[in-house]
Computed example of a mutant assay.
Amino acid sequence: MKRKLTPKQQRFADEYIKSGNAANAARKAGYSKRSARSVGQENLTKPDIKQYIDEQMAEIASKRIMDAREAVELLTRIARGEEKETVISSTPEGVYESQKEADLKTRISAVKEILKRYPGDDKLVKAQIRKAAAEADIAEAKARIMNASTDSTEAKVSEYLDKLDDVLGGDSDGN
């Protein structure tokens, strides 16, 4: 039969969990200042008190550590664009804070992480991932081309079409 802790022992254990110091925990629990150090060390050797402390510490640890379900839920929110990131922008007028969705590459990575946990040979999902990756590659290529400052607009468009053609695997003539 399990022995219950006295109120003083319970206070000692709770204080010890907070501070990690047996002597201080003993003083705060109401033991005399003179014997607090020895009583604190002695209490830590008592099986009932030790078991209580261990159980409480395990519960605290389990609340602080993300479990697999929480991890998959977070990845799902990222993949769907529901999870927002705070972005700080500084301008001459002041500092602004805004919320932004994850970029396409981050969302694709989240989807891949989810799929690792649910293996299956779903061709539709694989096609959707390929499409999303291609869209991300196209957006990056377009940004690089548009940021090139020395080319004329016609050259930029031509280069953009060539890059697009490379990504899609065909040619721009429709062949």
Score class of each variant (00 low, 15 high):
36 A>Y: 02
82 E>Y: 06
89 S>I: 09
72 V>R: 04
95 V>E: 13
117 R>C: 02
81 G>H: 01
28 K>L: 15
25 A>T: 04
40 G>S: 05
115 L>I: 11
56 Q>W: 02
108 I>Y: 01
106 T>K: 06
69 R>L: 13
72 V>W: 00
95 V>T: 15
54 D>T: 14
86 T>G: 05
96 Y>W: 07
50 K>P: 01
90 S>P: 00
29 A>L: 08
71 A>V: 08
47 P>E: 15
90 S>T: 14
78 I>G: 02
105 K>R: 15
125 V>G: 00
34 R>L: 10
42 E>D: 10
57 M>T: 15
79 A>M: 12
121 D>N: 13
87 V>K: 11
103 D>G: 13
72 V>S: 09
79 A>I: 11
29 A>S: 08
58 A>P: 03
69 R>C: 10
98 S>G: 10
124 L>T: 12
76 T>C: 02
106 T>W: 00
84 K>Y: 10
97 E>M: 02
66 M>R: 08
127 A>F: 08
94 G>P: 06
83 E>Q: 13
127 A>I: 05
42 E>G: 01
61 A>T: 13
87 V>P: 07
44 L>Y: 00
41 Q>H: 08
34 R>P: 00
68 A>R: 10
75 L>F: 01
105 K>I: 13
29 A>N: 03
88 I>M: 09
80 R>V: 02
57 M>F: 01
59 E>I: 12
22 A>R: 01
43 N>R: 02
111 V>G: 03
42 E>Y: 05
66 M>L: 14
99 Q>G: 11
74 L>T: 06
68 A>W: 00
52 Y>L: 05
121 D>I: 03
40 G>T: 01
74 L>S: 06
105 K>E: 14
51 Q>S: 15
32 S>H: 05
76 T>K: 03
100 K>V: 15
33 K>W: 05
93 E>S: 10
24 N>A: 15
64 R>Q: 15
79 A>T: 08
127 A>S: 11
80 R>G: 12
28 K>N: 15
33 K>C: 02
63 K>R: 15
94 G>M: 08
66 M>N: 10
35 S>H: 11
79 A>E: 07
92 P>G: 09
116 K>M: 13
65 I>N: 13
53 I>L: 08
87 V>F: 09
25 A>C: 08
119 P>F: 06
28 K>F: 11
109 S>Q: 10
45 T>Q: 13
126 K>P: 00
76 T>W: 00
26 A>C: 09
120 G>Y: 00
80 R>P: 03
102 A>N: 12
37 R>T: 13
40 G>V: 04
105 K>C: 07
127 A>W: 01
109 S>V: 04
26 A>L: 09
124 L>N: 08
39 V>Q: 09
71 A>R: 10
